[in-house]
Each structure stands twice: as C-alpha cells, then as structure tokens.
C-alpha cells in the first residue's frame, strides 16, 4: 500500500505479476491480484508447515514468517522468503530434493 495516498499497489517483484496487465498500479485488477496473493500464501503455509513454520501477509506487501516459538522474520519479496524459512527452521530449501520445497538439515 502507498504510505502517502493509501492506494493499494501491486508488488514490483517478478512473482507479483499475478496482475492481469502491465500497469504498475493495476487499480482495476486489485481484487484479482489480492486473491492470487492470498492463494500463494496458503500454498506457502501448506509447504512450510511440516518444517514448523508459518507465513502471514503483512499489509499486502511483505511476507512475515514465524516458527513454532513465535520468532519471526520478514521477507520483503518471494525471493527473500526461502532464506527466512531456512533461518528459522534450520532446513535447507531445495526443490531438486525430495517433495515440495525439499530440504535437508544443515
């Protein structure tokens, strides 16, 4: 969200192009964008819950990751998510290994 005008924006990260058009502020598509973001967070939780972590949306812009002890890390973009999960769980995320996001204890 724009801090000044309180307009809902869509992230600029490549993964945020769940929007329908190329516009940087896709006002008309914001509900679609939010729904895709919500769906993605549900998938993240499904994947990282067995690792003892969970994820919440922070203001529609940032991902907040928690472990079972309530410790948290903020991931500004999807690229930062996996480092945050690794830091909290001690597991290495590697989709070439095993199922889902894979992983191995470091």
């Amino acid at each position: 969200m724009c801090e000044v005008c309180a307009i809902f924006g869509a992230g600029e990260h490549w993964s945020d192009f769940g929007r329908v058009r190329n516009e940087r502020f896709p006002f008309g598509d914001i509900r679609h964008y939010r729904e895709e973001r919500r769906r993605r967070i549900a998938m993240i939780n499904d994947l990282i819950e067995p690792l003892g972590a969970s994820c919440e949306d922070w203001d529609g812009e940032i991902l907040a990751v928690f472990d079972r002890h309530g410790r948290s890390r903020l991931a500004p973009t999807l690229s930062d998510l996996w480092s945050a999960v690794e830091a909290l769980t001690g597991e290495r995320i590697d989709p070439l290994l095993g199922q889902g996001v894979g992983g191995a204890v470091q």
Partner: peptide
Amino acid sequence: TLWLSALLHAH
C-alpha cells in the same frame, strides 16, 4: 513462482 523462486534460491 514458488517453485522458480525456491529453485533460484538454492541453485
């Protein structure tokens, strides 16, 4: 996006 970001994160 979850898959590609995790792949690029690891490799």
